[in-house]
Amino acid sequence: MIPTYDKIHLKFKLNGSSYDKEDLKEVSYSLIKEGETYERVIGNFLLDWLDEKDTVEVQTSGSTGTPKIVSVSKQAMVHSALATGNYFKLSPGDRALHCLPTSFIAGKMMLVRALILGLELDVVAPSRLPAYDDQVEYDFCAMIPMQVKENIERLNHIKTLIVGGAAFPATLMPLIEDLPGKVYATYGMTETLSHIAVKPLNHLKDEGHFQVLDGIEISQDGRGCLVIDAPDLMVENMVTNDIVKLYSEKEFDVIGRIDNVINSGGVKLFPEQIEAKLDANIGQRFFISSEEDEVLGEKVILVVEKDDSSITPSTFKALDKYEKPKAVYVVDHFEETISGKIRRKNTLELLKKYAKQKPLI
Protein backbone atom coordinates (compact mmCIF):
# COMPACT_ATOMS: atom_id res chain seq x y z
CA MET A 1 0.00 0.00 0.00
CA ILE A 2 1.39 3.38 -1.02
CA PRO A 3 1.56 5.85 1.89
CA THR A 4 -0.12 9.23 1.54
CA TYR A 5 1.30 12.64 2.35
CA ASP A 6 -1.10 13.23 5.24
CA LYS A 7 0.33 10.36 7.31
CA ILE A 8 3.53 10.36 9.37
CA HIS A 9 5.39 7.07 9.67
CA LEU A 10 5.32 5.65 13.19
CA LYS A 11 9.12 5.18 13.12
CA PHE A 12 9.84 8.81 12.19
CA LYS A 13 12.09 10.68 14.58
CA LEU A 14 13.43 14.23 14.47
CA ASN A 15 16.64 14.81 16.41
CA GLY A 16 15.99 11.70 18.49
CA SER A 17 12.32 12.35 19.38
CA SER A 18 9.15 10.78 18.00
CA TYR A 19 6.22 12.98 16.99
CA ASP A 20 2.70 12.52 15.76
CA LYS A 21 1.09 15.09 13.49
CA GLU A 22 -0.12 17.45 16.23
CA ASP A 23 3.12 17.25 18.19
CA LEU A 24 5.09 18.00 15.03
CA LYS A 25 3.00 21.11 14.45
CA GLU A 26 3.89 22.34 17.92
CA VAL A 27 7.57 21.67 17.28
CA SER A 28 7.29 23.58 14.01
CA TYR A 29 5.78 26.60 15.75
CA SER A 30 8.62 26.51 18.27
CA LEU A 31 11.24 26.36 15.53
CA ILE A 32 9.68 29.37 13.79
CA LYS A 33 9.42 31.37 17.00
CA GLU A 34 12.65 30.47 18.77
CA GLY A 35 14.90 28.67 16.30
CA GLU A 36 17.90 29.74 14.30
CA THR A 37 17.42 30.84 10.69
CA TYR A 38 17.76 27.33 9.23
CA GLU A 39 15.37 25.97 11.88
CA ARG A 40 12.75 28.57 11.03
CA VAL A 41 12.89 27.45 7.40
CA ILE A 42 12.35 23.85 8.55
CA GLY A 43 9.45 24.89 10.77
CA ASN A 44 7.74 26.74 7.94
CA PHE A 45 8.11 23.81 5.55
CA LEU A 46 6.77 21.32 8.09
CA LEU A 47 3.72 23.51 8.72
CA ASP A 48 3.12 23.73 4.97
CA TRP A 49 3.49 19.96 4.71
CA LEU A 50 1.06 19.34 7.57
CA ASP A 51 -1.68 21.73 6.40
CA GLU A 52 -4.80 20.72 4.44
CA LYS A 53 -3.46 21.64 1.00
CA ASP A 54 -2.20 18.93 -1.36
CA THR A 55 0.62 21.11 -2.73
CA VAL A 56 3.60 23.05 -1.40
CA GLU A 57 5.53 25.91 -2.92
CA VAL A 58 9.17 25.35 -3.83
CA GLN A 59 11.76 27.82 -5.09
CA THR A 60 13.96 26.91 -8.06
CA SER A 61 17.70 27.55 -7.79
CA GLY A 62 17.93 29.84 -10.81
CA SER A 63 20.94 28.07 -12.30
CA THR A 64 19.40 28.16 -15.80
CA GLY A 65 17.20 31.21 -15.46
CA THR A 66 15.47 33.53 -13.04
CA PRO A 67 14.60 31.85 -9.72
CA LYS A 68 10.87 31.25 -9.41
CA ILE A 69 8.31 29.73 -7.09
CA VAL A 70 6.60 26.58 -8.33
CA SER A 71 3.74 24.64 -6.76
CA VAL A 72 4.41 20.90 -6.46
CA SER A 73 2.24 17.98 -5.43
CA LYS A 74 2.84 16.58 -1.95
CA GLN A 75 1.90 13.10 -3.15
CA ALA A 76 4.43 13.40 -5.97
CA MET A 77 7.05 14.19 -3.33
CA VAL A 78 5.94 11.04 -1.50
CA HIS A 79 6.56 9.01 -4.66
CA SER A 80 10.00 10.60 -5.01
CA ALA A 81 10.82 9.63 -1.42
CA LEU A 82 9.65 6.06 -2.03
CA ALA A 83 11.76 5.76 -5.20
CA THR A 84 14.87 6.88 -3.30
CA GLY A 85 14.06 4.56 -0.41
CA ASN A 86 13.61 1.61 -2.75
CA TYR A 87 16.81 2.25 -4.68
CA PHE A 88 19.00 2.57 -1.58
CA LYS A 89 17.04 -0.04 0.41
CA LEU A 90 16.28 2.37 3.25
CA SER A 91 14.21 0.85 6.06
CA PRO A 92 12.08 2.30 8.89
CA GLY A 93 14.36 3.18 11.77
CA ASP A 94 17.40 3.89 9.58
CA ARG A 95 19.33 6.95 10.67
CA ALA A 96 19.82 9.88 8.31
CA LEU A 97 21.76 13.15 8.50
CA HIS A 98 20.25 16.37 7.14
CA CYS A 99 22.87 19.09 6.55
CA LEU A 100 21.46 20.88 3.47
CA PRO A 101 19.43 24.11 3.34
CA THR A 102 15.72 23.33 3.55
CA SER A 103 15.07 26.38 1.37
CA PHE A 104 15.49 24.22 -1.72
CA ILE A 105 14.09 20.93 -2.96
CA ALA A 106 17.05 18.77 -1.91
CA GLY A 107 16.67 19.85 1.71
CA LYS A 108 12.89 19.59 1.68
CA MET A 109 13.09 16.06 0.30
CA MET A 110 15.35 14.97 3.17
CA LEU A 111 12.49 15.84 5.53
CA VAL A 112 9.86 14.17 3.33
CA ARG A 113 11.92 10.97 3.11
CA ALA A 114 12.16 10.84 6.88
CA LEU A 115 8.43 11.49 7.36
CA ILE A 116 7.34 8.91 4.77
CA LEU A 117 10.01 6.21 5.13
CA GLY A 118 10.19 6.38 8.92
CA LEU A 119 13.79 7.54 9.18
CA GLU A 120 15.44 8.86 12.32
CA LEU A 121 16.59 12.26 11.07
CA ASP A 122 19.33 14.30 12.73
CA VAL A 123 19.25 17.93 11.56
CA VAL A 124 22.22 20.29 11.78
CA ALA A 125 22.85 23.77 10.39
CA PRO A 126 23.86 23.69 6.70
CA SER A 127 27.47 24.85 6.34
CA ARG A 128 30.85 23.90 4.91
CA LEU A 129 31.57 22.05 8.15
CA PRO A 130 28.25 20.71 9.46
CA ALA A 131 28.31 20.25 13.23
CA TYR A 132 27.34 16.58 13.31
CA ASP A 133 28.81 13.76 15.38
CA ASP A 134 31.05 12.01 12.87
CA GLN A 135 31.28 8.92 15.09
CA VAL A 136 27.56 8.20 14.73
CA GLU A 137 26.64 5.54 12.17
CA TYR A 138 24.41 7.10 9.50
CA ASP A 139 22.61 5.04 6.87
CA PHE A 140 21.92 7.96 4.55
CA CYS A 141 23.03 11.55 3.94
CA ALA A 142 22.97 14.14 1.15
CA MET A 143 25.69 16.75 0.62
CA ILE A 144 26.99 19.16 -2.00
CA PRO A 145 30.53 18.65 -3.41
CA MET A 146 31.97 21.47 -1.29
CA GLN A 147 30.82 19.72 1.89
CA VAL A 148 32.32 16.42 0.74
CA LYS A 149 35.64 18.15 0.07
CA GLU A 150 35.72 19.95 3.43
CA ASN A 151 34.62 16.90 5.44
CA ILE A 152 36.37 14.06 3.63
CA GLU A 153 37.95 12.78 6.85
CA ARG A 154 34.60 12.79 8.65
CA LEU A 155 32.62 10.58 6.25
CA ASN A 156 33.73 7.14 7.40
CA HIS A 157 30.51 6.40 9.26
CA ILE A 158 28.06 7.28 6.46
CA LYS A 159 26.80 4.15 4.69
CA THR A 160 25.22 5.90 1.67
CA LEU A 161 26.14 9.44 0.65
CA ILE A 162 24.45 11.16 -2.30
CA VAL A 163 26.05 14.28 -3.75
CA GLY A 164 24.33 16.90 -5.91
CA GLY A 165 23.95 20.59 -6.63
CA ALA A 166 27.03 20.74 -8.87
CA ALA A 167 29.30 18.47 -10.88
CA PHE A 168 31.42 16.16 -8.74
CA PRO A 169 35.07 17.30 -9.02
CA ALA A 170 37.57 14.84 -10.47
CA THR A 171 40.01 15.79 -7.70
CA LEU A 172 37.73 14.21 -5.12
CA MET A 173 37.47 10.84 -6.85
CA PRO A 174 40.67 9.37 -5.34
CA LEU A 175 39.69 10.66 -1.90
CA ILE A 176 36.30 8.93 -1.80
CA GLU A 177 37.56 5.61 -3.12
CA ASP A 178 38.76 4.45 0.29
CA LEU A 179 35.60 5.47 2.14
CA PRO A 180 33.82 2.40 3.54
CA GLY A 181 30.42 3.74 2.46
CA LYS A 182 29.11 4.20 -1.07
CA VAL A 183 29.05 7.63 -2.73
CA TYR A 184 26.67 8.55 -5.56
CA ALA A 185 26.31 11.58 -7.82
CA THR A 186 22.72 12.63 -8.43
CA TYR A 187 20.87 14.05 -11.43
CA GLY A 188 17.71 16.05 -11.04
CA MET A 189 16.13 19.46 -10.60
CA THR A 190 13.41 21.20 -8.67
CA GLU A 191 10.76 20.21 -11.20
CA THR A 192 11.64 16.53 -10.82
CA LEU A 193 11.50 16.83 -7.02
CA SER A 194 15.21 16.29 -6.51
CA HIS A 195 17.06 13.40 -8.19
CA ILE A 196 15.61 11.03 -10.78
CA ALA A 197 18.90 9.23 -11.39
CA VAL A 198 22.05 8.37 -9.45
CA LYS A 199 25.58 7.43 -10.49
CA PRO A 200 27.94 5.35 -8.33
CA LEU A 201 31.29 7.09 -7.80
CA ASN A 202 33.37 4.67 -5.71
CA HIS A 203 33.94 0.94 -5.25
CA LEU A 204 33.37 0.40 -8.98
CA LYS A 205 34.27 -2.68 -10.99
CA ASP A 206 33.29 -1.01 -14.27
CA GLU A 207 32.65 2.56 -15.38
CA GLY A 208 29.55 3.94 -13.69
CA HIS A 209 26.65 5.68 -15.45
CA PHE A 210 23.55 7.46 -14.20
CA GLN A 211 20.84 4.92 -13.44
CA VAL A 212 17.23 6.13 -13.30
CA LEU A 213 15.04 5.33 -10.30
CA ASP A 214 11.87 3.24 -10.50
CA GLY A 215 9.03 4.90 -12.41
CA ILE A 216 11.34 7.09 -14.54
CA GLU A 217 11.46 6.82 -18.33
CA ILE A 218 14.10 8.59 -20.40
CA SER A 219 14.64 9.35 -24.08
CA GLN A 220 16.29 11.95 -26.30
CA ASP A 221 14.93 14.70 -28.49
CA GLY A 222 16.28 15.64 -31.91
CA ARG A 223 19.10 17.67 -30.35
CA GLY A 224 20.30 14.74 -28.27
CA CYS A 225 18.93 16.27 -25.07
CA LEU A 226 17.40 14.24 -22.27
CA VAL A 227 13.61 13.91 -22.10
CA ILE A 228 12.06 12.75 -18.82
CA ASP A 229 8.72 11.07 -18.20
CA ALA A 230 7.74 10.33 -14.61
CA PRO A 231 3.97 10.01 -14.11
CA ASP A 232 4.23 9.50 -10.34
CA LEU A 233 6.15 12.78 -10.09
CA MET A 234 3.64 14.54 -12.36
CA VAL A 235 6.38 15.03 -14.95
CA GLU A 236 5.34 14.49 -18.57
CA ASN A 237 7.66 14.82 -21.55
CA MET A 238 10.03 17.21 -19.74
CA VAL A 239 12.63 18.32 -22.28
CA THR A 240 15.92 19.33 -20.69
CA ASN A 241 18.87 21.17 -22.21
CA ASP A 242 21.29 18.45 -21.13
CA ILE A 243 22.91 16.59 -24.03
CA VAL A 244 23.25 12.95 -22.99
CA LYS A 245 24.54 9.62 -24.17
CA LEU A 246 22.05 6.80 -23.60
CA TYR A 247 23.46 3.38 -22.74
CA SER A 248 20.09 1.71 -22.23
CA GLU A 249 16.51 2.57 -21.30
CA LYS A 250 17.74 3.06 -17.74
CA GLU A 251 21.29 4.40 -18.06
CA PHE A 252 22.81 7.62 -19.38
CA ASP A 253 25.64 10.09 -18.96
CA VAL A 254 25.53 13.87 -19.29
CA ILE A 255 27.86 15.28 -21.93
CA GLY A 256 27.04 18.95 -21.37
CA ARG A 257 24.37 21.62 -21.66
CA ILE A 258 23.33 22.51 -25.18
CA ASP A 259 23.30 26.22 -24.36
CA ASN A 260 27.00 25.99 -23.39
CA VAL A 261 28.22 24.21 -26.55
CA ILE A 262 31.09 26.00 -28.34
CA ASN A 263 31.53 25.78 -32.12
CA SER A 264 35.19 26.57 -32.72
CA GLY A 265 36.41 26.19 -36.27
CA GLY A 266 33.56 23.76 -37.01
CA VAL A 267 34.41 21.58 -33.99
CA LYS A 268 31.76 21.22 -31.29
CA LEU A 269 33.23 21.52 -27.82
CA PHE A 270 31.53 20.88 -24.49
CA PRO A 271 32.76 23.16 -21.69
CA GLU A 272 31.85 20.60 -19.03
CA GLN A 273 34.19 18.03 -20.58
CA ILE A 274 37.05 20.54 -20.78
CA GLU A 275 36.44 21.59 -17.19
CA ALA A 276 36.66 17.97 -16.03
CA LYS A 277 40.11 17.69 -17.64
CA LEU A 278 41.28 20.94 -15.99
CA ASP A 279 39.79 20.33 -12.57
CA ALA A 280 42.93 18.82 -11.04
CA ASN A 281 45.19 21.61 -12.38
CA ILE A 282 43.36 24.76 -11.27
CA GLY A 283 43.14 25.61 -7.60
CA GLN A 284 40.36 28.18 -7.67
CA ARG A 285 36.86 28.26 -9.14
CA PHE A 286 36.72 28.51 -12.92
CA PHE A 287 34.63 27.74 -15.96
CA ILE A 288 35.09 27.41 -19.70
CA SER A 289 33.17 29.61 -22.13
CA SER A 290 33.68 31.31 -25.48
CA GLU A 291 33.82 34.63 -27.27
CA GLU A 292 33.54 35.64 -30.90
CA ASP A 293 36.54 35.12 -33.14
CA GLU A 294 36.98 36.29 -36.76
CA VAL A 295 38.71 33.08 -37.83
CA LEU A 296 37.21 30.36 -35.63
CA GLY A 297 33.74 31.82 -35.20
CA GLU A 298 34.03 31.14 -31.47
CA LYS A 299 37.18 30.70 -29.44
CA VAL A 300 37.52 28.96 -26.10
CA ILE A 301 38.19 31.13 -23.06
CA LEU A 302 38.89 30.32 -19.43
CA VAL A 303 37.26 32.46 -16.73
CA VAL A 304 38.92 32.28 -13.31
CA GLU A 305 37.83 33.64 -9.95
CA LYS A 306 40.65 35.34 -8.03
CA ASP A 307 43.95 34.76 -9.80
CA ASP A 308 46.47 32.75 -7.78
CA SER A 309 49.08 32.71 -10.56
CA SER A 310 48.93 28.93 -10.84
CA ILE A 311 47.85 28.94 -14.48
CA THR A 312 50.69 28.20 -16.87
CA PRO A 313 50.92 26.46 -20.24
CA SER A 314 51.29 23.13 -18.39
CA THR A 315 47.82 23.69 -16.93
CA PHE A 316 46.37 22.80 -20.35
CA LYS A 317 48.54 19.78 -21.17
CA ALA A 318 45.59 17.39 -20.90
CA LEU A 319 43.56 19.31 -23.49
CA ASP A 320 43.26 18.69 -27.21
CA LYS A 321 44.27 21.39 -29.70
CA TYR A 322 40.82 22.93 -30.11
CA GLU A 323 40.03 22.67 -26.38
CA LYS A 324 42.91 24.87 -25.24
CA PRO A 325 41.76 28.37 -24.15
CA LYS A 326 42.82 31.22 -26.38
CA ALA A 327 42.38 33.71 -23.53
CA VAL A 328 42.18 33.67 -19.73
CA TYR A 329 40.11 36.21 -17.82
CA VAL A 330 40.15 36.88 -14.08
CA VAL A 331 37.23 38.31 -12.10
CA ASP A 332 37.12 39.02 -8.38
CA HIS A 333 33.86 37.22 -7.76
CA PHE A 334 31.59 34.99 -9.84
CA GLU A 335 27.92 35.78 -10.09
CA GLU A 336 25.96 33.09 -8.21
CA THR A 337 22.44 31.82 -7.77
CA ILE A 338 20.93 31.96 -4.29
CA SER A 339 21.94 28.32 -3.86
CA GLY A 340 25.58 29.02 -4.70
CA LYS A 341 25.77 27.80 -8.31
CA ILE A 342 27.80 29.82 -10.81
CA ARG A 343 25.73 31.94 -13.17
CA ARG A 344 27.88 31.75 -16.26
CA LYS A 345 26.02 34.22 -18.46
CA ASN A 346 25.85 36.85 -15.73
CA THR A 347 29.54 36.40 -14.93
CA LEU A 348 30.43 36.78 -18.60
CA GLU A 349 28.71 40.17 -18.54
CA LEU A 350 31.21 41.19 -15.86
CA LEU A 351 34.07 40.53 -18.26
CA LYS A 352 33.13 43.61 -20.26
CA LYS A 353 33.59 45.84 -17.20
CA TYR A 354 35.82 44.34 -14.58
CA ALA A 355 37.78 41.34 -15.87
CA LYS A 356 41.54 41.36 -16.23
CA GLN A 357 42.99 39.35 -19.08
CA LYS A 358 45.82 37.09 -17.97
CA PRO A 359 48.51 36.61 -20.63
CA LEU A 360 48.98 33.08 -21.93
CA ILE A 361 52.67 32.38 -21.52
Rank of each mutant, 00 (worst) to 15 (best):
K89H: 15
Q135C: 06
Y87Q: 10
S103H: 10
S91G: 04
G118D: 07
I116K: 02
D122A: 09
L97G: 01
K89A: 15
H98M: 05
T84G: 11
L90P: 04
A114I: 05
K89F: 01
D134Y: 15
D133T: 05
A83I: 03
D133M: 06
L111E: 02
K108I: 15
E120G: 01
L115H: 11
M110W: 02
A131F: 02
G107F: 13
V112Y: 07
F88Y: 02
P130W: 09
V124H: 06
S127R: 13
A114Y: 13
S127D: 13
F88Q: 11
L121I: 13
F104C: 13
G93S: 01
L119A: 14
M110S: 10
L117G: 12
N86I: 01
A131D: 08
I105A: 08
A114H: 02
T102N: 15
P130K: 03
S127W: 11
K89G: 08
N86D: 09
A106I: 08
L90H: 12
A96C: 03
S127C: 13
I105Y: 00
A114N: 04
G118E: 03
L129H: 12
K108N: 12
T84N: 12
P92C: 05
L117C: 11
L119P: 01
L129A: 09
S103D: 15
G93W: 00
K108S: 04
I105N: 00
L129N: 15
P101T: 15
R95E: 03
F104I: 12
G118R: 07
G85C: 12
E120W: 00
M109Q: 14
F104W: 14
S127H: 06
L119S: 10
Y132F: 14
